[in-house]
Design a protein around this nucleic acid. Structure first.
Length: 224
DNA sequence: GTCCAGGGTTCGT
DNA sequence: ACGAACCATGGA
């Protein structure tokens, strides 16, 4: 049972997920901040409000009043905090010269730059690197740590960076093309979130949150 | 009514 | 380096 086996099982079971649902890289980044510790359905309403008001633009958001912006994103929760983070992020984004300028940086350098922005932590930065900048970065979240420690592929005590590098290296051994790495990391994180959602919502405290369930037997039989 | 969601920061120890 | 409180809405 390897990291690649699990991916193949999940992909066979659920199919392609087409993440990140957004019309532009900038929309991905806004969504990454808004979805912090928040369900995506609540974020969609907030982004819909911004779009309908033609506010989904870095120059506009960077100059918006915090309370006014909070009124458009209440559904995403933590609206005071997230309004501040969005404005702060957009000020940084525009001052850096926007997407084209940022995309000229190497992945490691761009990660450090994103992490330096208040309100952008490790997972949010990697969401942006993978889904907005198409860099071969594996996003780690609480689901990944929980599911894979139950399988026994990790012990669960690793730091975020240790886990990210471990998943990236295990998959890069089998996938040489950078563009295919991006595609695989893209689908893998989406599949983990989907699978955890399917299992955890039916089971208190996620006690049965393990990958080997009947919904995956078909995929696992193909790869074992 | 309780629990959790596609986390991060700040402030203790 | 690690833990805990804080942020706040909406669906199950």
């Amino acid at each position: 049972m390897t990291v690649l086996d699990i991916f193949n099982a999940l992909y066979t079971c659920y199919g392609k997920q087409h993440w990140w649902p957004a019309d532009s890289p900038f929309e991905v980044m806004v969504g990454a901040i808004l979805t912090q510790n928040t369900s995506w359905s609540n974020v969609e309403k907030a982004i819909g409000n911004l779009k309908s008001q033609n506010l989904l633009d870095p120059d506009i958001l960077s100059r918006m009043d915090q309370n006014k912006l909070g009124g458009y994103i209440t559904s995403a929760g933590y609206f005071n905090l997230k309004a501040k983070r969005l404005i702060n992020f957009c000020k940084w984004y525009t001052s850096c010269g926007g997407y084209e300028a940022l995309n000229k940086q190497g992945t490691g350098q761009l990660r450090q730059a994103l992490l330096s922005v208040n309100g952008v932590g490790e997972e949010t930065a990697d969401d942006m690197l993978l889904y907005a900048f198409a860099r071969p970065v594996f996003v780690i979240d609480a689901y990944t740590r929980r599911i894979f420690s139950r399988i026994g592929l990790v012990n669960g005590e690793e730091t975020y960076q240790d886990l990210r590098v471990h998943f990236e290296e295990s998959l890069k051994n089998h996938i040489k093309q950078a563009s295919e790495q991006v595609d695989t990391f893209n689908e893998y994180h989406a599949l983990i979130v989907l699978h955890a959602k399917n299992i955890c919502q039916k089971s208190p405290r996620c006690e049965s949150c393990c990958i080997s369930r009947q919904c995956l037997r078909k995929g696992l039989n193909d790869t074992q």
